[in-house]
Write a protein that binds this DNA or RNA. Structure first.
Lengths: 127, 127
DNA sequence: CTAAGACCTCACGTTGACGTCAGAGTCAAC
DNA sequence: GTTGACTCTGACGTCAACGTGAGGTCTTAG
């Protein structure tokens, strides 16, 4: 059983963040008689997943909806629908980002033309 | 010359947003003698660009750095560097999003396996 | 035994991109 | 000339994911 600081360090987040996740119902912890939190090893991966979802633009409530599937590996049709919805949301985001990237690239190309002396930091082909 | 409401409608943002952009130095407007803002047609496209950059995760300050190039079409080496930096930031974001998407997809697949032809939409299974 | 870290619970502060309300002036139509 | 839609400037509110003390308890190495 890990202490909160240990989990935070391994997952690359702050202690405060972990307490916040608990507050949001995203992360549970056992307690020692004195009230200190103790986490199983799996908590680290769980926290990483939460971070990943945040990075994908989901809010705490969305993550909360999605988490049961991750934990149990089983999903109701409802949950599946939500998962698919979130995935599609990410897809839309990627599309937007890609558009923005194209836009910037275009500006960069034009800029390079107009400042010929500059070291050519040519556009890396998008994967 | 367009009025602020017209620009807002065409660009799909709120009037408040336009005034905020002005406050941030992202969007300039002429003024009628009575003080009302009047925008040229190009403002709509400019606003769309700003929105796109926000969607890409840039803050007002970042957009402000990038905008001169868009406007003038000319870039100093410094500006180019910033542009490239922002573009790479977007690339990193896309990578993260793609990872998150994969993760969700994986969970969806597993979930589908465990609920192959289920029709229990109504009965909430007790957890 | 003791001192230094870790940890605990409030609870207020932060940041960014606006929302929203108040009170007042402006413009086009009827 | 008056109504009603539009606009103006402040200025406070919002929401999310934490940051940051304050004041006190726990644990453990020496």
């Amino acid at each position: 059983m890990l202490r909160i600081g240990e989990v935070a360090a391994r997952a690359g987040v702050s202690v405060r963040a972990l307490r916040y996740y608990e507050e949001q119902g995203l992360l549970e912890a056992e307690r020692t008689p004195s009230g200190q939190r103790r986490y199983p090893e799996g908590a680290v991966g769980r926290v990483r997943f939460i971070q990943q979802m945040y990075a994908a633009g989901l809010g705490s409530a969305d993550v909360l909806e999605v988490l049961p599937c991750v934990h149990t590996g089983v999903a109701t049709p409802e949950m599946l629908a939500r998962l698919v919805e979130q995935r599609d949301g990410i897809d839309r985001q990627v599309a937007e980002l890609t558009q923005a990237r194209e836009r910037l690239d275009e500006i960069i190309r034009i800029g390079e033309e107009h400042v010929p002396g500059a070291r050519s930091v040519t556009a890396s082909p998008r994967r």
